[in-house]
């Protein structure tokens, strides 16, 4: 079994991605292009934030980590390991939808790969999240294809959004210099490189249906850094906002 440090590192990356992506999804509540999309993004926000909570609880209960609320709401920016993709502001619905599409397929291959993980809590999460992620990707795929096939503006917007997000999304799969090999050898999960390739296999057919052009991935430089604690300028204000009330009194019960 991999060391606690290796597992902790992996879990923080996964959980921080979920928390910050959930935060971004939740910002659509009340502002979506149609009411049905408000509801969809709110619902996905709950799932993502719920996933983050579940992962922080694993840290807390299995690996000697801190209380989930304190860990999520009080950590400094440097201690966060989320990818740059999730930190970016929502921008328009086009950007948000494309991010949701790329992120949720990445999540799907990740949790799917953990069905037989040697770390038992991952097996459980994999089973639990499967049903939710199925709907998230179904939603993303359906909207992407519809918007791309409904005329020039939708198509142009989604193609632009793909160009804007693809390198950021590839950055989700930033390997860990310290722990990657151990985690693979111990069969915790198949590793970032393998997940990246499975992810491309999953998104490609959908992009073809939407007639979108996926750039040659060999010409793309994935945006790394988030996993090592280097972040965009968008993360600090986000964390400050998220902890605004909690940090008024961290000993109080809210």
């Amino acid at each position: 079994m991999s060391s606690n440090a290796a597992l902790t590192d992996l879990i923080i990356k996964m959980a921080d991605d979920e928390l910050v992506q959930g935060h971004r999804n939740s910002e659509w509540t009340g502002l979506g292009p149609v009411m049905e999309e408000d509801i969809a993004f709110s619902s996905m926000a709950q799932d993502k934030i719920g996933h983050a909570w579940a992962l922080y609880r694993i840290l807390h209960e299995n690996l000697g980590g801190e209380d989930p609320d304190r860990f999520a709401f009080m950590r400094p920016e440097k201690a966060f390991k989320c990818s740059h993709l999730v930190e970016m502001p929502n921008s328009g619905y086009d950007f948000s939808l494309m991010r949701h599409f790329l992120f949720d397929h990445a999540e799907t291959v990740r949790y799917e790969s953990m069905r037989e993980s040697s770390f038992e809590p991952f097996q459980q999460l994999s089973k639990k999240f499967r049903g939710e992620l199925k709907y998230h990707t179904l939603h993303a795929d359906a909207f992407l294809i519809q918007l791309c096939n409904a005329g020039e503006e939708g198509y142009a917007r989604m193609q632009t959004a793909l160009y804007e997000t693809i390198a950021l999304a590839a950055g989700i799969f930033e390997p860990s210099a310290a722990y990657e090999e151990t985690l693979i050898a111990d069969k915790v999960y198949p590793g970032e490189k393998e997940l990246y390739s499975r992810w491309l296999d999953q998104i490609y057919p959908v992009l073809v249906k939407a007639a979108l052009n996926l750039p040659d991935m060999n010409t793309i430089t994935p945006v790394y850094g988030g996993r090592q604690g280097f972040h965009t300028s968008y993360l600090v204000p986000l964390l400050k906002e998220m902890g605004e009330v909690f940090n008024l009194d961290t000993e109080a019960s809210w």
Binding site: M35, D38, E241, W254
Partner: peptide
């Protein structure tokens, strides 16, 4: 809705998103 991103702790945050989501659903 403006307090969803600032809700203190997971429990309150999830409850508030669910609630506001319901309200939009009621509108629908």
């Amino acid at each position: 809705g403006t307090w969803i991103t600032r809700a203190p702790g997971f429990k309150r945050k999830l409850a508030l998103i669910a609630k506001v989501q319901d309200e939009i659903g009621h509108g629908q």
